[in-house]
Computed example of a mutant assay.
Amino acid sequence: MRFRHADGTAVHVAYCSNVHAAENLAGVLDQLSRFGEPVRERLGVDRLGLGLWFARPVASELIADPRAVAKLRAELDLRGLEVVTLNGFPYRGFHAPGAKHAVYHPDWADPRRTGYTLDVARLLTALMPDDAVRGSVSTLPLGWRDPWTPSRSIRAARQLDLLADGLSRLDRPVRVGFEPEPGCVVENTGQAVTHFRDTDTTRLGVCLDTCHLAVAFEDPARALDALTAAGLPVVKVQASAALHVRNPRDPATRYALSTLVERRSLHQTREGAPYGVDDLDAALWGGLPGHRPWRVHLHVPLHADPRPPLSTTRDVLRATLRELFGGARAWTDHVEVETYTWQVLPDRPVGEAGLVKGLAAELGWVRDELRSLGLVEVGG
């Protein structure tokens, strides 16, 4: 979907395909017909954005075969789908059981991360619609915090210079957004300012994930003011909501949380500052005092509430969208809905039809929010 802000900015809205377990090219092509096109049809729009995720083997296959890239572009066009943004955070194995910390490797001290990111950026230039102003790629915030040494910081700085240089050589503009996340080297927007303010900010910036923003108990207005003051662009906003836990000591609440403990993904849990643990099970086993509300890094559907007594941080998402788009200027032009944890939720969708319905409902919620802020939907 595309929208027009009052300042003339074309705002692209997509959903992130990392919700689908596809780590080969056949799987990527298959998800277009099984999910992308049906979601578009359910929304009743002529054109739908996808934030594709290419695992490293997929990216390598496409880079080696221009005909495969042309085939993918043709499939997107055929099904009324378009791509202006890619998720370059997971390298591979995102849906593997027990992935946990593996999703943060290789990190930005490793040249493999640079090579992968430049490859997907190059592919994006071939997939973007001809009238797109630019593309975006989101990536991890340098790496997991432990072990992260001064020598790794030096190596990462060199890789970021190589990244910016590589992006400058592309045929079309593509920016890379580093995505602050609790537990990582860059956990919040303040740390993003510290680490990235001296980089090439014409090509590098921040991917603002509103689930992560909420888990870090950041205020959206203050976060955006800090980024603006540092000259760091919001390359992309990932529209997402975290789990909010009003009373962590309540037995019914603790039981509901226990049903969400799982092996695949980390669910960093915070009780304001400075209290935090790296996974939900650690929080439940006494890692947090439980005197104040918790927020859990678990992406929950934007349009629906979990069963009480749990709730969401949808209010943080709504406030962030208001700050980004409710004024005289649009502060970003790429919005990506990113809920990839459907299958661990108690009210998980049933089958492919259920997931299509859920994804369309999330996009519909974002559409309504943007309309309420004065944006006008264009192009179907």
Rank of each mutant, 00 (worst) to 15 (best):
F3K: 12
D7Y: 08
G8Q: 03
V13W: 02
S17G: 11
V19N: 02
L25T: 05
Q31D: 01
R34M: 00
R34V: 00
F35H: 10
V39R: 04
G44W: 10
D46F: 03
D46K: 15
L52M: 05
A55D: 00
A55P: 14
A59Q: 01
S60H: 13
L62A: 08
V84N: 11
P90V: 04
Y91W: 09
F94V: 05
G98W: 02
K100A: 08
A102R: 07
V103A: 07
P106Y: 07
D107E: 15
A109T: 07
G115H: 10
L123G: 07
L124K: 05
P129W: 13
V133T: 11
R134T: 05
L140Y: 05
D146E: 05
W148V: 02
S151G: 11
S151Y: 01
S153N: 12
L160Q: 01
L162A: 06
D165R: 06
S168E: 07
R172W: 13
R175I: 03
V186E: 15
N188K: 10
H195P: 05
R197E: 11
R203H: 03
C207G: 13
C211S: 02
C211K: 06
C211N: 06
S240A: 13
A241I: 01
A241G: 00
R246P: 08
P248T: 14
A252V: 06
R254A: 05
Y255V: 15
A256R: 13
R264L: 15
L266Y: 09
H267T: 06
W285I: 09
L288E: 10
P289R: 09
P293I: 12
W294Y: 12
W294H: 06
R295Q: 11
H303D: 13
H303I: 00
P306Q: 15
P308T: 00
R314S: 03
T320A: 15
G327D: 02
W331D: 07
T332N: 14
V335I: 13
W342I: 01
Q343I: 01
L345I: 01
L345A: 10
D347C: 00
D347K: 00
P349L: 15
V356Y: 00
E362I: 00
L370H: 11
G374L: 03
G379D: 09
